[in-house]
Write a protein that binds this DNA or RNA. Structure first.
Lengths: 245, 245
DNA sequence: GATCCTTAGTGTGTGTTAGACACGAAGCCA
DNA sequence: TGGCTTCGTGTCTAACACACACTAAGGATC
């Protein structure tokens, strides 16, 4: 933290409805990369911009950080406003601050990524009649601003993270079959996994609780349902344990 | 990115020497956690604050981001100004934006961590007669702002990173012995490593080039010198290879 | 109720790797 | 010459990663 004169006044001075500072300030936004998984694909949630710049282009949901909210709150608020999503798993991704990234001026964006259980949430048409839609990960259009880069960063992070942290569960309903779980991993990692080895490894973690229930409404043998033991995970995490897919 | 009215004017309007915006803006700073390793310890570079708030307290080097510089540039500039360090390895760590973190008002800090070869660089007394000093990792005083938290985050990241990315080399001179390298790893991980296994593993990566040179000026058998093959690493990295200590 | 179709669920063998472990060689110094 | 310090090296064992295929269950269809 600098002790330079820049710091002399951090709070704004009011000038008839505007906010004045001794030195120019970048604007700060949050942008969210929202991942979901359905039967077919890894999906990403995008919104269509209703105003310039990049009017009509698809972009990550996000917006300006307000004075009285912290960063994750801003991310959650924007997600709620623009896509109707609430109570998602959310983690900070990276902060993008290149000079040319926003044609309107200096804008620094703190990017987050979110994991969503697709079945749970229905994406509401966003406010402002702006459109919100899921895109298959392999089928994302060119995005506004530097959002292509943010998305690429998020996908790399997701791939890295899924291998040693149990975030796969965040993308599934509370009760799930091992096959569903394997599908999620396969979609994120974009490669097939061996069924027996996958089950062996996941069950060996002790983080899955076998339920007295099976799948319903399928035209074949029904699979057993499991749930994720979050409490146990938090316990193991403290003791510095590792797992790897 | 939002399309809300907030975005209507991103560039400032001038009012006799100050900068005015439609909406209040947080200030944006960068803060750097600088790691070094010497014969005894993992070390962290701190500066003593010359002005309030937290006057006289130790803090991470850092300061406000300027209008015309991107985030890593700001981090490097502040490092240079406050500690004299240049050309260090620098990576973004995390962005801290809690509401109460700076008593002067809303300040969002993008934190970086840096790795320094202690032998190479001499820490200059900072400008402004502010003091800059290395502290042993186990012996850091209470810091200004939320810098304790930033430091803790950086140490956790360093521990995680060193195990699967060859950043240990960034803390050593270009030519080093395997024992020196092992010491670096042991200090970062804060646990002893087996000598034979360590050498086996590191040499197996193929990233170390054995030089025709040995250590000089030691009162015992001289150890062979090695250098890190950065080119080969970048090659292997592209092919998605892994290593682990 | 027989057949078909689809997915569930399960075990072994093999090669690789992690980790424990100790001693002779080299070089400097006194 | 002897002593001190660090260098440099190999093997064994246990655990793990990975490859691999068949029977069981259940609904759908005729």
């Amino acid at each position: 933290m600098s002790a330079a004169p820049l710091a002399a006044r951090v709070d704004p001075e009011r000038h008839g409805g505007s906010y004045a500072y001794d030195h120019p300030r970048p604007a700060v936004t949050v942008d969210c990369v929202v991942f979901g998984v359905d039967e077919e694909d890894l999906k990403i949630l995008l919104v269509r911009r209703g105003i310039p710049p990049f009017e009509g282009r698809w972009a990550l949901p996000g917006g300006f950080v307000r004075e009285e909210e912290d960063l994750p709150s801003a991310a959650r608020r924007e997600l709620q406003e623009e896509t109707g999503l609430e109570k998602v798993f959310l983690e900070q991704l990276y902060t993008f601050g290149d000079l040319g990234r926003d044609p309107r001026g200096r804008v620094i964006s703190v990017a987050y990524y979110a994991l969503v259980k697709l079945g749970d949430h229905r994406v509401r048409a966003a406010t402002d009649a702006r459109e919100a839609r899921w895109f298959a990960a392999g089928d994302v259009p060119r995005l506004a601003f530097d959002h292509d880069r943010i998305l690429a960063t998020a996908r790399a992070r997701l791939q890295g993270k899924v291998r040693y942290q149990p975030i796969g569960f965040e993308l599934l309903p509370p009760k799930f079959t091992l096959t569903q779980l394997q599908r999620v991993y396969e979609k994120i990692l974009a490669r097939p996994l061996d069924k027996r080895n996958f089950r062996k490894k996941l069950l060996a973690t002790g983080l899955l609780v076998e339920l007295d229930e099976v799948e319903r409404g399928v035209a074949h043998r029904a699979a057993r349902l499991y749930r994720f033991d979050r409490r146990k995970y938090e316990q193991l995490e403290k003791d510095g344990f590792m797992f790897e897919v």
